[in-house]
């Protein structure tokens, strides 16, 4: 019998809280994400001004900022393990699923933190309509889950490569392209004051995307991590 007594959840939470504790002490990933997000948002708002941008343009701008901000920080959790040489002992000690779930939760926390700062700023700087805010939050939440579910496995893959930074965005882009197209379309409808029911098919797609990506990642992670 294996010498284990605690379950997958407590082991995953151990990985999560370890990463969270280290992030709070170093702030590496959070600073990278926030700096990129705030800088991009500021440049966009100053160049375009509050000149009544169309929902189509606002939606595209918002998800461009979200995508590149996420790309600048979400890979850090795996890259840090490789660069500091801790991946070896983590590999030997922890079960792959607990590592994946812990890292997924950490990336989710990171992106939720970023989103909760960037989104209000986006509405203020671009003067985007706020009448339909609840449906917007629904799409945003699904988008955050979609981004994290797709990029956590990619982060594990690229952490083993020598050119990590550029590779993350390049490898993630094809996987995220469909997600981003749906998110931009749904956000445009919401900003155009349509109801949540008008984006029901997009919501179904986003839920399916998160479930499929998370399941595939859980199945594949062991092979990525241990090779």
């Amino acid at each position: 019998m294996p010498k284990t007594s605690s379950g997958l959840l407590s082991r995953s939470l151990a990985v999560y809280f370890k990463d969270l504790r280290m992030e709070l002490r170093t702030k590496n990933a959070l600073n990278a994400i926030l700096m990129f997000g705030v800088t991009t948002l500021t440049v966009v708002s100053f160049s375009l001004g509050q000149s009544g941008l169309s929902p189509k343009l606002l939606s595209a701008l918002f998800w461009i900022i979200m995508f590149f901000s996420a790309m600048s920080g979400l890979a850090q959790t795996f890259i840090r393990e490789e660069e500091t040489g801790t991946s070896l002992i983590l590999n030997l000690t922890a079960e792959p699923n607990s590592i994946y779930i812990g890292k997924l939760l950490f990336n989710l926390t990171l992106l939720i933190t970023m989103t909760s700062i960037i989104t209000p700023m986006f509405f203020i700087f671009t003067d985007a309509p706020t009448e339909n805010i609840l449906p917007f939050v629904v799409i945003l939440t699904l988008g955050v889950f979609g981004l994290v579910s797709a990029t956590t496995l990619v982060a594990a893959i690229i952490s083993k490569a020598s050119v990590k930074g550029a590779l993350f965005a390049v490898v993630s882009f094809p996987i995220l392209m469909v997600l981003l197209m749906v998110l931009v379309g749904a956000t445009e409808k919401i900003l155009d004051n349509n109801s949540l029911s008008s984006v029901s098919s997009e919501i179904q797609f986003l839920i399916a995307y998160v479930v499929v990506m998370t399941t595939i990642s859980l199945l594949l992670f062991k092979f990525v991590w241990r090779e």
Binding site: T4, S5, S6, T84, T86, I89, T93
Partner: peptide, 30 residues
């Protein structure tokens, strides 16, 4: 069942020694 000690195996610098020990025991399942 295995333990490994090596000069190229690194622990977490930004955690204390106790936090490292607690982490590695929890993540190993005990």
């Amino acid at each position: 069942y295995i333990s490994f000690v090596s000069p190229y195996l690194n622990l977490y610098d930004h955690l204390t020694a106790e936090e490292n020990l607690i982490f590695f025991s929890t993540v190993a399942g005990f």
